[in-house]
Nucleic acid binder design. Structure first.
Lengths: 132, 132
DNA sequence: AAGTAGATTAGAATTGTTTTAAAGTAAAAA
DNA sequence: TTTTTACTTTAAAACAATTCTAATCTACTT
């Protein structure tokens, strides 16, 4: 499916800029990227586009589910008086974090790590919403 | 142990400001906070301190291991063309992210969730460093 | 008590993202 | 088709979080 159709199907107007972005993003290879990354790619391909447009488009794409964005633990630097290794519950509504001990969770099957690398740690975030 | 001693033991000069911060942080209750949070607490307790000092102190505290900071997935907003639910390898050196499928990992024992809440998802980040 | 290295501060600088308001463009209506 | 309308793009300004700068201050050493 070409970018134009894809955008239309998602309920977005296929503008020149959106098509250019979609052409880069949906070429079949999953990728992670920042607005800045993408802007560079576009500039280097000889096109011109403002960074604000990139942000606008990406946010629209995200809203309609064409892309996702990595839910870190929020936007700001969060400090923690707990220096032991531990994981977190994350209250999706309030943003509140609650610790839990590594012993309270047990990971059985492990994914195969990329060649030449070893694991230096694992961070687990269990997201919470109110029951009912 | 009082804050002054604690700071000295950690190799930090116990200044008025650091003591004030330590008094708030190390009162026995683990807590998560941002620089802004802490600044508000301090201002509300009638003390005066610049936000820059808060940042300086927290970074110092972090360097000596008195506190930790939550490793989000980096500082900037990262988008992802993969809209399926998935987890990530995180290359600690380069910041690169690689997806892995939820089926590639299996969590057996689950921590007890806070009362009144249910899980709305789980995010797992496996950090990687080069072997040898 | 005096000197020095390290700490604090206000304010400027930086970085990443969003907003604003004006000008442009795709889709719908005529 | 043309006109109209609603949505987009843009540069520039605004904003938010964090760090830096350079002057002042303070805890520790002597």
């Amino acid at each position: 499916m070409d970018s134009k159709t894809k955008l239309r199907k998602a309920g977005l107007r296929p503008t020149k800029q959106r098509i250019a972005i979609a052409d880069i993003l949906f070429n079949g290879i999953n990728r992670h990227f920042t607005a800045e990354n993408l802007h560079n790619d576009i500039i280097q391909s000889g096109k011109q586009m403002s960074l604000a447009t990139i942000y606008n488009c990406l946010n629209k794409f995200k809203n309609v589910g064409l892309i996702s964005h990595l839910q870190s633990l929020g936007e700001t630097y969060v400090f923690d008086t707990n220096v032991e290794h531990h994981h977190h519950f994350f209250n999706e509504k309030t943003g509140e974090l609650i610790d839990f001990r590594p012993g309270d969770i047990h990971v059985k099957k492990f994914p195969k790590l990329p060649k030449g690398y070893k694991s230096s740690g694992i961070d687990i975030i269990i997201k919470l919403i109110e029951k009912n």
